[in-house]
Write a protein that binds this DNA or RNA. Structure first.
Lengths: 215, 215
DNA sequence: TTAAATTTTGTTGTATACAACAGATAATAT
DNA sequence: ATATTATCTGTTGTATACAACAAAATTTAA
């Protein structure tokens, strides 16, 4: 990435801070705070914030401040509803566009992962796994939709996985099963497995949200 | 709508001009042009343009100008792919949330429409018909997705219907069939009919695009 | 004539000053 | 003490000036 305007720099920085929950969900920040924190003038900051509002990560309260979007029960429900609609579709429809080698790599990665300690990069691997299916669709609406979802999903994952690290193993097993089906070109089965995976993941998130461990 | 900032006013105005093809697809405009045309200073104009870029209606070419997005074969294909995925889903899943009376009103409206002359407001009715299904889903991702799609769809419709006004009758007949199925609570059938409707509509758009009548 | 270097022009990128306004706080009247 | 009014404070909304830069036009050299 050669060219980086201040606008995109501010956007990347703020978005990262939101997705990784450095700014707590529900909290209020101001443009001036960001201005001094990032050492960037208001104009690029504002443009970044406007975009983030568009993406649903913040809400601008006129004359009040910038509210970091909450992650509540309803939001999680919407999120998973969309994923349950889109992911089986992209797997079934575009799974065959992904080179077998990519599946093999994933497969290997996952088996390695199951026999080792959990690390910080696991989030990215998971994200990458889902993202690839959207990208090969070559449909910019699908890709953008995934982009929109992924930051919220990451926030959800961070807020939940912290409590239950054992979940990673279960998730990886399920990813493994999906990849396995893909390697055999059993797209319907892979789609079905992704539905099961998402449903279980949803129930787990719901449980954690309702337990009130975070808010 | 009581409160209207200049930002939203600029956004509404520019978006309307794009969707109704007052700014031709592919043409290039500048911030200064918009500034003088709308009599609004650059800052709100920029914020509006940024949002429109985010929504895919324009592309900002640094140091060059603002390019009104094109509507080509690929774009139309993506558009219909998403609609074919989402609309049957929302009809099947949320059709029952719409009061019967609303269906009856639609039904009446459509039959009136078939026995009268075509008017300008037909676009809005069509839009409204599709939109209601998304709105009752109460899923902000779905609603926003529809919002995103609808402006592109409107552009497509305007560019195609101009040539073939007879298409309106066919479309209305299909809408009628869908509403009919909904009135009988035959959601699966309604979903199936919407798929047929969209597929035919897609083929029609493709044909018109390929004929090169517009570019 | 042609190629290269230079200047000009037009556009967006960025910084900043000021206006508008909502909400909180303080002051006042009853 | 309480309700009402007025003031103050903090924040975003808007306007505008200037910087940076890319591309086009012009000039210059060979």
């Amino acid at each position: 990435m050669a060219k980086q305007t201040l606008k995109t720099k501010a956007y990347d920085e703020i978005r990262k801070n939101i997705t990784y929950c450095n700014y707590a969900p529900g909290s209020i920040i101001t443009e001036e705070f960001l201005q001094t924190e990032l050492n960037i003038s208001r104009t690029p900051i504002r443009e970044a914030i406007n975009r983030l509002e568009q993406e649903g990560l913040v809400t601008i309260k006129p004359k009040k401040g910038i509210v970091i979007s909450n992650l509540n029960f309803e939001e999680a429900g919407m999120l998973y509803e969309i994923r349950l609609l889109l992911e089986p579709y992209v797997i079934r429809t575009y799974g065959n566009r992904i080179p077998q080698q990519t599946y093999v790599d994933f497969y290997k990665h996952f088996t390695d992962l199951l026999s080792a300690e959990a690390s910080e990069s696991d989030f990215d691997i998971d994200d990458n796994f889902h993202q690839i299916f959207y990208n090969v669709s070559q449909n910019s609406y699908l890709m953008e939709m995934n982009n929109r979802l992924s930051s919220q999903i990451t926030r959800l994952r961070i807020l939940t996985r912290i409590q239950e690290k054992s979940d990673l193993i279960q998730t990886t097993h399920e990813h493994l099963a999906i990849v396995n089906a893909c390697l055999q070109s059993s797209w319907d089965q892979a789609a079905e497995l992704s539905i099961e995976h998402l449903k279980r993941s949803r129930e787990n998130s719901f449980k954690l949200i309702l337990s009130g461990k975070f808010k």
